[in-house]
């Protein structure tokens, strides 16, 4: 690059860090999906059905996640109830 490019160069966006952060999040998410058992989506649907018997909620107000560590797995269930 010549002397003129040098003058206008100064502020280039440092985007590599953004790329890395976005990748870390999506890759971790996809790895989790890959290892989760096949029954999980079905079970999530049924759990939603049961909750709906009592409270009206949307599909995205329930999140079901399976966290596995060495010797046990924890099923994490998060339900956001609408304000009454």
């Amino acid at each position: 690059m010549g002397i003129f490019d040098y003058l206008k160069k100064k502020e280039k966006p440092r985007t590599a860090a953004m790329a890395k952060e976005r990748l870390q999040i999506i890759v971790a998410h996809e790895r989790r999906k890959r290892t989760e058992p096949d029954y999980l989506p079905m079970m999530q649907q049924e759990i939603i059905q049961v909750i709906r018997k009592y409270v009206s909620i949307a599909d995205d107000q329930v999140s079901v996640q399976l966290e596995s560590s060495d010797d046990c797995s924890v099923l994490e269930l998060n339900v956001t109830l609408p304000e009454s």
């Binding site: 280039k12 966006p13 440092r14 985007t15 590599a16 790329a19 890395k20 990748l23």
Partner: peptide, 9 residues
């Protein structure tokens, strides 16, 4: 210049 992921990344 931090425009590209590094080997370490």
């Amino acid at each position: 210049s931090a425009e590209m992921l590094s080997v370490a990344d």
